[in-house]
Design a protein around this nucleic acid. Structure first.
Length: 545
RNA sequence: GGCCUCAUGGUCAAGCGGUUAAGACGCAGCCCUCUCACGGCUGAAUCAGGGGUUCGAUUCCCCUUGAGGCUACCA
């Protein structure tokens, strides 16, 4: 065969053998059950929540088996790589306290013995493996014009569907040494393709940790191993890197199930044992029509940065995802309200095979519960951390008014039945406690009650003594109310509402409006205590002249 | 078009051939109550459809339907 001669022509400067490479990547010495897995994102400058979800499964698999979790940057598609995009990946992992055991630092230093952990720095390795396949007649150079991007592919596909051939052999698969030499001498560039041994009739079986055994049509396509720029597409890089790096379980999105037969054939062609696969379902979203649909980039919450910007506590994101990964977590959480999420026994067996819909309402609830368990001091400092990053003027204010802020964050906090009205830091100032930042306007909320309110507040402010207990405060309101003809006894009021100006609740509403500008708020005594005597009096007197 | 994956209330889901088909979020009502929240109680709401297998199917098999994915020198 011409394989050896052609390989020499194609890779004149590759002198190493596959065996030489393997010497540099000795097998890992693993304890029983230890998992080696990885997160292998492309640096696109954007981290999709589905990506993060997949990473989190992989991370947990390693974590619970005391295994090795590494980060490999898949920057093989030069069109897509964005400078600084790597940083986005590192920042997000950092934010969630996910620290890979092996990775490459941002300034290019490899941590761990199986690097480089960036694919663009591994080109020489891929060439050695490609050369071996060419030598053995299992791969060949292809000089055809390449397809450019998605639009071309779609056009191509339209025509192809008509033919519906079970195999897809490349025209260059049987070029002779002389023909190859002619192309090379012309200075033509080439891709390397696998020469599939299949005819389109064969079947393959493989095992998936989530789906179980999957049987599919074997690959029968001469797919590309090395692009004309010498860089491998996903399939080849995956097989070579995960073998050398000793990955035991590859966690990846369900979209890869269809290409797994290609990967299996490649492993076999190289005489290697395939890794175990764990194809996780893709997170969906409920669209405007109420249908489950792809969680596309157009949704703001598809971007992991959204959760940072909105100020969701990081454990809320993690715990909600754990919830999606398997609902056993939720039951465990109910039984162990104070445990750390890390104490949950995560198991692959329990991962759902169904594509889950991301439910922001449920997610908010998870976040609420987490924040409700925090102390006021903890809320304050997390909120401040968030503000430092996303709202610097608020951060300054918080630093200057710490006691006051901790004061209103303490309202109904702690104890067995804490308030649950905060689920993200960005809402505290504008949604939960706007009245702690400025005096409210409420005149427009009053309508037909306006005169009554004016009268009540005037009288209430006149007699007002800053209360020192909840009882004292309530007694004060009732006193004024009674004096003005409000019902103190609610039963009496219900029996004959027309005999009174209103009931105690109505009276409290006026005070509440003056203090908070709202019809509902936490306990008014608590609010007064945080506002202080001077501000409380000011608010009772200010708006309605 | 072909191939692959998936299918229990609105959502997340327990369930592994016999159950009054858990639980959580959401929704409705009641209680607590100065309002809201919290909490407590109650309620409405699910096995996509059709065939098998079986004494018996939500559970196993097949078909249909629906949703998603892949079918690039993207990942």
């Amino acid at each position: 065969m011409d394989g050896k001669k052609i390989a020499g022509l194609l890779f004149p400067d590759v002198n190493e053998s596959v065996d030489d490479i393997f010497k540099k990547y000795p097998p890992r010495h693993l304890k029983e059950g230890q998992v080696v897995s990885r997160f292998a994102p492309s640096p696109t400058g954007f981290m999709h929540i589905g990506n993060f979800f997949q990473m989190f499964i992989s991370y947990n698999l390693c974590r619970v088996t005391d295994g090795i979790f590494f980060l490999r940057i898949e920057d093989t598609d030069s069109k897509r790589e964005v400078k600084e995009a790597k940083k986005v990946i590192y920042d997000i992992l950092n934010r969630y306290d996910i620290h890979p055991n092996e990775y490459q630092t941002l300034d290019g230093k490899d941590v761990g013995g199986y690097g480089p952990y960036v694919q663009s720095e591994r080109k020489d390795i891929y060439k050695v493996f490609a050369k071996k396949l060419v030598e053995e007649g299992k791969a060949f150079p292809c000089f055809c014009r390449k397809t450019e991007g998605k639009d071309d592919v779609l056009k191509l596909r339209e025509n192809k569907f008509v033919e519906d051939d079970e195999k897809e052999y490349d025209p260059c698969r049987d070029l002779s040494y002389e023909e190859v030499k002619k192309h090379i001498d012309n200075g033509e560039s080439f891709a390397i393709r696998l020469k599939t041994k299949n005819t389109g009739k064969e079947r393959v079986k493989f095992y998936d940790l989530i789906k179980g055994e999957i049987e599919a049509k074997a690959n029968a396509k001469d797919f590309v191993l090395l692009k004309s720029d010498g860089v491998p597409p996903y399939a080849f890089a995956h097989v070579v890197d995960d073998t050398l790096m000793g990955t035991t379980i590859v966690v990846r999105g369900e979209e890869y199930i269809s290409s797994t037969p290609m990967h299996i054939e490649l492993f076999e062609a190289l005489g290697l044992k395939p890794t175990l696969y764990c194809h996780n379902p893709l997170i969906c979203k409920i669209d405007e029509n109420g249908n489950k649909s792809k969680f596309s980039k157009r949704y703001a919450d598809a971007d992991m940065r959204y959760y940072s910007e909105e100020g969701y506590p990081k454990t809320a994101v993690l715990e909600y995802l754990l919830n999606i990964i398997n609902s056993g977590f939720e039951i465990w959480r109910a039984k162990n309200p104070d445990a750390k999420w890390q104490d949950f026994t995560f198991s692959v067996k329990d991962i759902t095979a169904v594509a889950p819909a991301f439910d922001i309402v449920k997610f908010n609830d998870v976040a609420k519960n987490i924040i409700a368990k925090m102390s006021a001091e903890e809320v304050y400092s997390s909120w401040l951390d968030w503000a430092k990053e996303f709202d610097s003027s608020l951060a300054k204010w918080l630093e200057a008014n710490k006691n006051y802020a901790v004061g209103f964050l303490s309202i109904d906090r702690g104890g067995v039945k804490p308030r649950k009205d905060i689920y993200k830091w960005s809402m505290i100032k504008n949604e939960t406690y706007p009245y702690m930042f400025s005096r409210p306007h409420f005149e427009e909320l009053l309508a037909e009650d306006k005169e009554k309110c004016k009268e009540f507040l005037k009288e209430y402010a006149k007699d007002f003594v800053f209360p020192s207990s909840n009882e004292e405060w309530f007694a004060g309101v009732k006193q004024t109310a009674e004096k003005l003809g409000y019902a103190i006894d609610n039963k009496a009021y219900k029996q004959n509402p027309d005999a009174f100006k209103g009931n105690t609740a109505k009276a409290c509403e006026f005070v509440r409006l003056a203090l908070t500008g709202r019809r509902n708020s936490p306990n008014l005594f608590e609010i007064m205590r945080v506002l202080g005597e001077k501000e409380t009096k000011g608010r009772l007197q200010s708006e309605l002249k």
